[in-house]
Design a protein around this nucleic acid. Structure first.
Length: 737
DNA sequence: TTTAGGG
DNA sequence: CCCTAAA
């Protein structure tokens, strides 16, 4: 029972430390050396959590942040207490089920409590030491001081969307001290929940449907989750003044029988199940649908329960595309899932075993087997992140420092979430899994790209890099025999790494899936376009890598222009082509840019601008926004504020040369619109075959929050917009990627 | 040049 | 996305 203080700071933290170790009765010490990067918080999930349940790590810090910047979220940080060295491992973040946080809520005082959960899943008062440690940690991180209390759980549920009436806020456990009667507290909780229920009902009646979460039962869902927790917490075990603990956001199974038992297995299992979803959080194929359909309004589901496991390859491809903006032909589900998960989590923390485990229910087994490996990698990652992030973690901090850091160390690390650091694992995995399959060119490219990104982040780790390089080399070189390709490889690599100085061979990604028509156009005389494409590239390829990629772009550009749009350009296009073929000089001049650009173009499909007859530059294709980009944008806005597009462009989209500040602005506008639309993208669209993947609700929530902070939300809309028939009409597809 | 908005 | 006025 430590002191309990309430805080009015804009940042509120409610956290609990959970010990998963069955044997450990107490946590000797909690040392948190690093924290989840603020910027990643919203999209960072406890993908590695499963490992922790194995007993290797016996403590987990669960943080709930009802912040302005992040809708209520719980962050789970794994603390490895194992006698080993009290080494700490940063784990992931779990997003709690939460409704939108409203401004008001943010301002409310919050009580911080530190609780440890023992192996049985019961809350145990944190020791002074623990508290101290954590406090220090938090302080160090520049986060607001936190207050700690012994026991207690804070349950809060806000449904702001509901407008005035809709807003539900529940704060429990205030002033609950260890010695106090738990039951009393429980009662309080209960009543609170009841209130919530009432309110939610009311809201429902008034608005007819869902509010913030978009599902009709949304508020209910929220309540259910919490209430369930409450029940569990206060019911049986409560007797010992210990609260039974269950992960805050569980699968929303309505009936959910008490899952938490005294058996560790059960606990871990449930945890595993619980956490698995997080990895795929942002997008939930099925779950989203469910939500939209109002069938299963689960909060948790909506926000974090995205089960990639059950998706078909096709669906996974869809998600992949939505996430990274490019197609993939990889058939390996595991690979796909990992990739997507990594992209969404913006980290490489995705446990290799996570998916598999869940799928097969071999949770424990799988975990144990892979635990070690993962952990090893894990630790390293943590360190890296710590380095990058440690400077500043304060959410509101505009810390230029951190940004500098980021830039210095390699923006790709965090930014290119689509990539991951676990290239090694990946390859190993791949190789092992599909030995038989002869890698196709495309496949190789995929890998290469992944590697490129994967490796770059770890630039500081020489060993790893080397490893990556080798690996990639193998893959790249084997199948590709043409010299020109090799050349490209080197070039690409260098470019992408930017001045890192690390040379990693890689195949530049020349779009292959959709043969460039332009080439055809260019080669008017050569009907056979496909084969030609490669040839052309080679031909055009000039000693200078830049020229090479650029040429390609150029060509495609002109080509498309001529073909699709302006006839006038045809001649021009041809001209271009010719010029490029013969003297690339011109092209180079036009394109002569910085490396980043070239690398960008190379690594992604080239975005080109087409010269219009009018003299304007027009973009060739709609470059679909990927989840990663959206996330970066949101993050950028949170850091720089809406309106400072050029800043955001520089900071967060430095590597995305094709996104202009105007693009960012436009996208933000769309996101805002989408977030304001009370109802999540309709199912109709969704069902539509490969339509697009809806933007994950959490992200939209964030957008909305940010918008509110920046007063971008029209007052009128803010209050009652959510209404029943409210949405509709045009919200066209703002809610999609 | 960068923003904000309309188209 | 494009285009443009305004800053």
């Amino acid at each position: 029972m430590q002191t309990q203080r309430t805080k009015t700071a804009s940042q509120n933290y409610v956290f609990a430390v959970q010990s998963l170790a069955r044997s450990h009765q107490s946590v000797s010490s909690i040392k948190i050396s690093a924290f989840v990067p603020q910027k990643l918080l919203p999209f960072y999930y406890a993908t590695r959590f499963p490992q922790l349940s194995l007993g290797r790590s016996d403590t987990v810090l669960v943080l709930r942040f009802p912040l302005a910047h992040h809708s209520h979220q719980s962050y789970v940080v794994g603390v490895d207490n194992n006698s080993d060295e009290g080494k700490f491992e940063e784990c992931g973040v779990e997003k709690s089920s939460s409704c939108l946080s409203s401004p008001k809520y943010i301002a409310d005082p919050v009580v911080y409590k530190l609780v440890r959960v023992d192996g049985d899943g019961r809350f145990v008062p944190a020791t002074d030491d623990e508290v101290m440690e954590v406090e220090d940690f938090l302080v160090d991180d520049k986060t607001e001081m936190i207050d700690v209390a012994d026991i207690g759980k804070t349950a809060d549920c806000t449904s702001n969307e509901g407008s005035d009436s809709g807003k539900l806020q529940l704060e429990v456990s205030e002033g609950l001290s260890h010695s106090e009667n738990v039951e009393a507290h429980a009662e309080k909780l209960t009543s609170e929940f009841e209130n919530i229920e009432e309110v939610s009902q009311k809201v429902k009646e008034e608005e007819g449907l869902s509010i913030s979460c978009g599902s009709p039962d949304n508020s209910d869902a929220c309540m259910n989750v919490d209430s369930k927790c409450a029940d569990q917490h206060y019911e049986s075990p409560a007797v010992e003044e210990k609260l039974q603990f269950e992960i805050p956001m569980q699968e929303t199974v309505p009936s959910s029988t008490p899952r938490v038992n005294d058996h560790c297995n059960d606990l871990s299992e449930s945890i595993g199940e619980f956490y698995k979803p997080p990895s795929g959080q942002a997008e939930s194929g099925p779950s989203t649908s469910a939500v939209c359909n109002n069938s299963k309004p689960d909060f948790s589901k909506l926000e974090e329960e995205i089960c990639l496991d059950n998706l078909s390859i096709r669906e996974l491809h869809e998600f992949f595309r939505a996430t990274f903006g490019r197609e993939t032909t990889v058939k390996d589900k595991l690979w796909l899932k990992r990739r997507i998960a990594m992209g969404l989590t913006n980290s490489c923390d995705v446990a290799t075993t996570t998916f598999t485990i869940k799928d097969n229910k071999l949770v424990n087994k799988g975990n144990e087997e892979n635990c070690k490996n993962t952990n090893a990698a894990f630790t390293e990652d943590s360190r890296v992140e710590a380095v990058l992030v440690s400077p500043k973690n304060s959410p509101t901090n505009h810390s230029t420092q951190r940004e500098d850091h980021k830039i210095a160390l390699g923006e790709r690390f965090h930014d290119n979430a689509e990539l991951d650091c676990g290239s090694d694992d990946l390859h190993t995995e791949e190789r092992a899994a599909k030995r038989v399959r002869k890698p196709t060119r495309r496949y190789i490219e995929e890998l290469s790209e992944a590697e490129t990104r994967d490796c770059s982040p770890k630039v500081h780790n020489s060993v790893k890099n080397i490893g990556c390089g080798q690996t990639s080399q193998k893959f790249c070189l084997r199948p590709i025999k043409s010299v020109s390709l090799n050349e490209r490889i080197m070039l690409t690599r260098l470019d992408s790494l930017g001045g890192s100085g690390i040379e990693v061979p890689c195949v530049s990604r020349v779009r292959r899936s959709r043969p460039r028509k332009n080439i055809k156009a260019l080669m008017k005389f050569h009907p056979s376009s496909l084969g030609m494409a490669a040839e052309v590239v080679k031909v055009l390829a000039v000693p200078s890598s830049l020229a090479n990629s650029e040429c390609t772009d150029k060509v495609s550009k002109s080509r498309s222009a001529s073909e699709t749009t302006e006839p006038l350009l045809t001649s021009e296009a041809v001209k271009d082509k010719q010029s490029s073929a013969t003297g690339k000089v011109q092209v180079g001049k036009n394109l002569g840019l910085k490396h980043t650009d070239s690398s960008e173009d190379t690594s992604d499909d080239n975005t080109a601008t087409v010269r219009t007859a009018k003299g304007g530059m027009r973009r060739k294709h709609h470059r679909a926004w990927t989840l990663v980009e959206v996330m970066k944008l949101v993050e950028g806005v949170s850091k720089c504020g809406a309106g400072r597009w050029s800043e955001i462009k520089r900071l967060s989209f430095a590597s995305y040369s094709y996104r202009t500040s105007v693009d960012l602005k436009d996208k933000w506008r769309n996101l805002l619109k989408a977030s304001l639309a009370q109802t999540p993208p309709d199912e109709g669209m969704n069902s539509r075959k490969h339509a697009s993947v809806p933007i994950p609700a959490p992200i939209l929530l964030r957008v909305r929050e940010l918008a509110e902070m920046h007063s971008q939300v029209p007052p009128n809309l803010g209050s009652n917009m959510g209404g029943v028939g409210g949405r509709s009409m045009h919200e066209t597809r703002s809610g999609y990627l």
